[in-house]
Design a protein around this nucleic acid. Structure first.
Lengths: 240, 240
DNA sequence: ACCAATTGATCCAATCGTGAACCAATCGGT
DNA sequence: ACCGATTGGTTCACGATTGGATCAATTGGT
């Protein structure tokens, strides 16, 4: 990676560009002046300009392309919070952080959009070893004594279904969801609402889900996951 | 090690610098004048200045670096905070970085899972101002001259549909998708495949999508988005 | 007179910024 | 389809500035 320390002139250019983006002078997708022009504009050498641009590119604020130019990247608005003068840290927000800030209702809505479809995909693609791993998680979840243990294997089950899709983005999404479940606020929410009989309901729903997966029946799998999540949503958020 | 005793002039410089730091005249991370300038400033020889600076450096108040300068150390209040968490989880990765590494096929699969459903949600919740913003993006996309301009307004259109869902997680997802589109690799892929007549096809599909949204017809909106993305996927990835 | 502090000077090594040249990818007009 | 202009990518040598180190000469208090 490039040096984390920049010299005087380079910092000047860096902050100058940041400023123009914050001020709306450079909007999303807008093209910056050529490096040679920027150098003249800031009264520094081109090499110095490049140092600043490299930094901004590594932060994900800019996109550079040979022969085309330098552009402000899309979706930078929320990443340009006011920062302390000497701070070099970019506004790198992780997926799980984003989800953590989201409302439970929003998150359950997203789960209801993604997970049934993903499960249907998994029904088409699950290998026998995938199915065995999923069944294992189900067994552990049923045998779980405390809520924490149940939670762990429940999360594992969902994750292993996603792993069966073989889609890296989906697997990552599920990992992020599971991380949110570990959040104290969510755990408390579950502790209040997840009774012992409810766990048996969940186990039964998981069972029909696994059966549908084993049958490689996408439609049945989708509805099974959907029913399960609807139940979870109702119990977690109230009868909304 | 250096002597613990300093002479008159050296102590003068030492206290002078300490004073300026206490007074806020020199903030954390600020750069001190060069040793030669400090010498002139305090009216003493450079060697004397160096003695004072060495003392302050050994105290952890200053940081000196050859060729760069002398700086007030950051976090002077911190004593021995060497223990950083350095968590084992790969949580320091942003959503868009994850997507960047993903294969186009995986990403389009995810888009086909999420975006039709999200569009259906938008059909239920879109306000009149939402619809106007979406229509505006469509107009610009149709009027666009170059590929870059078209790409920008196409991304804006999809984003504004997601904004109509009022779901923060979904909006964030779309921003991440749009950031991936800025990736040079994806731009190249489009440049090779997106011809002028294909753009008119996309514009038409966008048109029916917007109509369905305006009618608040979730089902029609879902199929419109689905058809559109299927077309995009076919053109981008080949007739898979 | 003694002696530590201070001075003035010189050279070294690291860093930064500059200027220039050249390469490679892209775009636009012919 | 080609060519020229534009743009980012790369490398190099040079000068300026900065802290690092050393030494002989000077100063000033005891």
């Amino acid at each position: 990676m490039t040096d984390l320390l920049l010299g005087r002139s380079a910092t000047l250019v860096l902050e100058g560009v940041r400023q123009r983006i914050r001020a709306g002078e450079l909007r999303e997708g807008a093209q910056l002046p050529a490096e040679r022009d920027l150098a003249a504009l800031f009264g520094v050498a081109r090499n110095t300009v490049r140092q600043a641009l490299e930094r901004l590119e590594s932060e994900g604020v800019l996109v550079r392309q040979v022969g085309r130019g330098t552009f402000v990247r899309q979706g930078v608005r929320e990443g340009l919070n006011e920062r302390e003068p000497a701070s070099a840290a970019p506004a790198a927000v992780t997926l799980s952080q984003r989800m953590r800030e989201a409302s439970p209702a929003d998150l359950m809505e997203v789960r209801l959009i993604i997970e049934p479809q993903a499960a249907a995909l998994a029904a088409n693609r699950a290998s026998s070893t995938d199915l065995e791993r999923i069944r294992e998680a189900l067994r552990h979840s049923i045998a779980a004594r405390g809520l924490a243990e149940f939670e762990h294997w429940d999360a594992q089950l969902h994750l292993r279904v996603f792993e069966a899709t073989k889609n890296a983005v989906l697997i990552d999404y599920c990992r992020a969801i599971n991380r949110v479940r570990d959040e104290p606020a969510w755990y408390q929410l579950k502790k209040r609402t997840v009774t012992l009989e409810l766990r048996t309901v969940y186990d039964r729903q998981h069972g029909t889900l696994v059966e549908a997966l084993a049958d490689h029946d996408p439609e049945a799998t989708r509805t099974a996951m959907r029913e399960h999540l609807l139940r979870v949503s109702r119990n977690l958020l109230g009868e909304g």
